[in-house]
Amino acid sequence: MLITRECDYAVRVIRALSGEERLSVNDICEREEITAPFAYKILKKLQKAKIVRGYRGVHGGYSLKKSVSEITLLDVYLAIDPGMYIIECMNPKKKCCRDEKLDGGCEVHQELLRIQERLQDMLSERSLQEILGESEKKEKVVGE
């Protein structure tokens, strides 16, 4: 499971939108140091996953469709890359290249499957509200 820069930036986009009624793409980009083309690409995927809502027109922009208390890192990562696998053979559409004769793949495949399941469990354990709240607390302590 490769957590890409796009996945990282998607979390930043959500961080920028949290607690805001609506933000323009320029505001999001400025706050999170993301280029506009990249932000648009991410926002489109987050919209498709029903995590953000887009508004058209002069007063357009974006807002969260879900509360950060309902969103996990796994939700964000899967919105950006629905086929996130730690190795290609984890994808049910692909065969294990080492031993196609075994029904469930080779022994290594089985172990990696267990690891991937645990990683997904860990990414879905805490909401972004919990994660971002801890980040804000650390900033206050450092800034005091």
Score class of each variant (00 low, 15 high):
residue 69 S to E: 13
residue 81 D to F: 00
residue 108 V to E: 13
residue 111 E to H: 10
residue 50 K to P: 02
residue 51 I to V: 05
residue 66 K to R: 15
residue 103 D to F: 14
residue 60 G to W: 05
residue 47 Q to H: 08
residue 71 I to R: 04
residue 58 V to W: 11
residue 49 A to C: 11
residue 112 L to R: 10
residue 69 S to V: 02
residue 54 G to A: 11
residue 56 R to P: 03
residue 69 S to W: 01
residue 53 R to C: 08
residue 51 I to T: 04
residue 110 Q to C: 07
residue 54 G to S: 12
residue 110 Q to W: 08
residue 66 K to T: 13
residue 88 E to M: 04
residue 102 L to S: 15
residue 67 S to A: 05
residue 60 G to Y: 07
residue 85 Y to T: 01
residue 77 Y to H: 03
residue 112 L to E: 12
residue 47 Q to Y: 06
residue 50 K to D: 12
residue 80 I to M: 02
residue 80 I to P: 00
residue 72 T to R: 03
residue 110 Q to F: 08
residue 99 D to L: 03
residue 80 I to T: 05
residue 57 G to S: 13
residue 53 R to H: 09
residue 56 R to M: 06
residue 46 L to S: 04
residue 100 E to S: 10
residue 61 G to I: 03
residue 55 Y to G: 06
residue 86 I to T: 09
residue 37 P to K: 13
residue 52 V to N: 00
residue 77 Y to Q: 02
residue 83 G to E: 05
residue 112 L to Q: 14
residue 107 E to H: 06
residue 92 P to D: 12
residue 42 I to C: 12
residue 62 Y to W: 13
residue 43 L to E: 09
residue 87 I to P: 00
residue 38 F to I: 15
residue 83 G to R: 10
residue 51 I to W: 04
residue 75 D to K: 05
residue 110 Q to G: 13
residue 51 I to M: 01
residue 39 A to N: 07
residue 49 A to D: 10
residue 75 D to A: 06
residue 51 I to S: 01
residue 94 K to T: 08
residue 73 L to N: 02
residue 101 K to I: 07
residue 102 L to V: 11
residue 46 L to V: 07
residue 48 K to N: 08
residue 74 L to D: 07
residue 58 V to E: 15
residue 110 Q to S: 15
residue 108 V to P: 00
residue 62 Y to D: 04
residue 111 E to W: 12
residue 64 L to K: 07
residue 58 V to F: 14
residue 91 N to E: 09
residue 42 I to N: 08
residue 101 K to C: 11
residue 50 K to G: 09
residue 84 M to K: 00
residue 78 L to W: 02
residue 63 S to N: 04
residue 58 V to T: 12
residue 63 S to H: 07
residue 94 K to G: 01
residue 85 Y to N: 03
residue 51 I to G: 01
residue 109 H to T: 12
residue 89 C to G: 04
residue 100 E to G: 09
residue 38 F to G: 06
residue 111 E to I: 13
residue 49 A to W: 10
residue 96 C to Y: 01
residue 68 V to C: 07
residue 107 E to Y: 10
residue 68 V to H: 06
residue 71 I to F: 03
residue 100 E to M: 09
residue 104 G to A: 10
residue 101 K to N: 10
residue 44 K to G: 07
residue 57 G to M: 12
residue 66 K to D: 13
residue 96 C to V: 01
residue 41 K to Q: 15
residue 84 M to S: 01
residue 59 H to R: 15
residue 104 G to M: 06
residue 38 F to L: 15
residue 41 K to V: 03
residue 39 A to S: 11
residue 105 G to N: 05
residue 83 G to W: 01
residue 101 K to A: 12
